[in-house]
């Protein structure tokens, strides 16, 4: 018998060493996620992929698949928890989708649609985070950063440049750039780096192409993120 577990009642096969997220993605099943990406080691920080296994909460991107697990994923109760996590992310940053180049291609926004988030609910922080436009080809818009560390992992593990890091703790956590001035222009970052294309939100943006693809024709306009055949696929691939 092949190894398998149940995801919302469906049998999902897995191979040894796979996480619940990896096995679900391989089977074309969507488990909501923000900080997980198929090409990178899991980070387990956004908690969007929270599922219940045998009644206990776990993050699908970090927990190993095991034979006979009963995994609850898209129940109204769990999606409601996810909605709350999304609302917290929205009010912690400055997310003005109508003026964001990423709108329609944004994983945060698409996930919020999928979870039916109608309001940010909480009081907004409206933080003050100046952007970094120093680099000739790439813009950093820290107001939209959700601290997923995908750029950190891509720059460190693929580009071998270590351009990004998270600094601070708790509410003060923020993304920093590894140069003496703290500016992107003073690093060896290049627009062709993997880290330049990995950001799920509109925080790392290539300049001068923001509206090359019109709103309405973007990744998640015709196809909601939950209907994606290969969950985890992003437009950079």
């Amino acid at each position: 018998m092949n190894d398998s577990f149940l995801l919302d009642g469906e049998t999902i096969p897995f191979s040894p060493g796979q996480t619940v997220m990896q096995a679900a993605a391989a089977a074309g099943k969507y488990i909501p996620h923000l900080c997980w990406h198929p090409d990178f080691a899991p980070h387990g920080s956004c908690r969007l992929c929270i599922v219940r296994i045998g009644g206990r909460y776990a993050t699908a991107c970090t927990v190993g698949a095991a034979r006979g697990q009963v995994v609850e994923n898209r129940s109204e109760a769990i999606d409601a928890e996810r909605r709350t996590l999304l609302q917290l992310l929205f009010v912690e940053g400055n997310h003005f989708c109508p003026s964001c180049e990423k709108s329609g291609d944004c994983v945060l926004q698409a996930t919020a649609y999928e979870m039916g988030m109608l309001t940010p609910h909480f009081d907004h922080f409206y933080p003050d985070r100046p952007l970094d436009a120093s680099h000739p080809e790439v813009l950093l818009e820290f107001n939209r950063c959700i601290l997923c560390e995908l750029c950190v992992r891509a720059s460190r593990d693929v580009d071998r440049k270590n351009v990004f890091a998270l600094a601070g703790r708790g509410l003060r956590s923020h993304l920093i750039v590894n140069s003496e001035s703290g500016r992107l222009a003073d690093t060896d970052f290049a627009a062709t780096d993997r880290a330049a294309a990995v950001c799920p939100v509109g925080a790392i943006l290539k300049k001068r192409v923001g509206f090359a693809m019109p709103i309405g024709k973007r990744t998640y306009d015709p196809r909601p993120i939950g209907k994606s055949h290969e969950p985890g696929t992003r437009e950079d691939e």
Partner: peptide, 18 residues
């Protein structure tokens, strides 16, 4: 009913908030 982006999250006018 909060109708539209600005009622829901302040919208573009809230970009002055900093």
């Amino acid at each position: 009913v909060a109708l539209g982006a600005c009622a829901v999250n302040g919208g573009l006018p809230a970009q002055r908030n900093n």
